[in-house]
């Protein structure tokens, strides 16, 4: 009934093949991630000069920008994985989206904390309703809802379907909220822009460790999602075995 599988990317959607692949890929990415993050952060913390305007707070960028980047990319990955699940019904895809949820939420939390701590000396307050910070807070709420929906539904396929629908609708509303936040508080905090705008020249003394740190966070995300997906596959297999036991007994 099923056509003979030809070698393609989709083969890794088979749980067994995915387990075999991730068996050696996971340690590799994990160690690379640890190394890149260590190098990037040590370089950034100890070996970069102070900014003439922001002083040593510029060092927070090596945490803030990579985590913010991964917070958004994690949601984007969840969106793609949800679409793959809804269209091609690959279980690994749905489970990878589930595994990415908590990782993305934690990245959002790190971006929020570092943003707030950075804001304290710059704006004189721990929390400013800056549009960017506000959008990240809303993104965090979306992550919470997504994770809660996954854990609330008993049947795994139903949970995968419903969270995928939520992820797609949520993506649209997250983008809308982003524009709403800008509209809502435009012009109040233009002075203290958090990220380095594309136009401004940034010295390689900052760029190099930033890129290393960004690579590290990306690899860490990959490693954690691989590990989480492996766990979800095992949990799913466990559930299937328990169900079968119950059916036979």
């Amino acid at each position: 009934m099923t056509p003979t599988p030809r070698p393609s990317l989709w083969e890794y959607a088979n749980p067994v093949k995915f387990m075999r692949l991730s068996d050696w890929l996971l340690p590799l990415t994990a160690w690379l991630a640890a190394a890149a993050i260590a190098v990037g952060l040590v370089w950034g913390f100890f070996l970069t000069p102070d900014d003439f305007r922001q002083g040593s707070t510029v060092k927070i960028i090596f945490l803030h920008v990579p985590s913010a980047l991964m917070a958004i990319n994690a949601w984007a990955m969840m969106l793609v994985a949800s679409l793959v699940w809804l269209i091609r019904r690959h279980h690994v895809s749905a489970l990878a989206a589930r595994a990415a949820g908590p990782v993305g939420a934690m990245m959002t939390l790190i971006a929020l904390f570092t943003g707030a701590i950075w804001g304290q000396p710059m704006w004189g307050t721990w929390w400013a309703w800056d549009p960017r910070l506000t959008s990240f807070l809303i993104l965090f709420l979306f992550y919470l809802g997504y994770i809660a929906l996954w854990s609330a539904i008993e049947d795994p396929d139903t949970a995968a379907d419903l969270t995928a629908v939520l992820c797609i609708v949520g993506s649209v509303f997250a983008v809308l909220s982003r524009y709403a936040a800008i509209f809502w508080n435009q012009g109040l905090h233009q002075g203290a822009s958090l990220s380095v705008a594309p136009g401004t020249r940034m010295d390689w003394a900052y760029k190099a460790p930033l890129y290393v740190s960004m690579t590290g966070f990306g690899l860490l995300f990959l490693a954690l999602v691989l590990a989480g997906t492996r766990t979800e596959i095992r949990a799913r297999r466990m559930k299937a075995l328990i169900n079968r036991e119950r059916m036979q007994g």
Binding site: I138, L141, F142, L144, G145, A148, L149, A152, I153, T158, L162, V165, L166, V169, G170, F173, L176, S177, Y179, A180, A181, F183, W184
Partner: peptide, 25 residues
């Protein structure tokens, strides 16, 4: 989304309120 859940009320609030953000703003 939450119709099949036994105690879906609280979860539904958590899901719906972030979606209300643009409308509220």
């Amino acid at each position: 989304l939450t119709v099949g859940l036994k105690r879906g009320g609280l979860l539904m609030s958590l899901l719906v309120l972030p979606l209300y953000v643009p409308t509220l703003v």
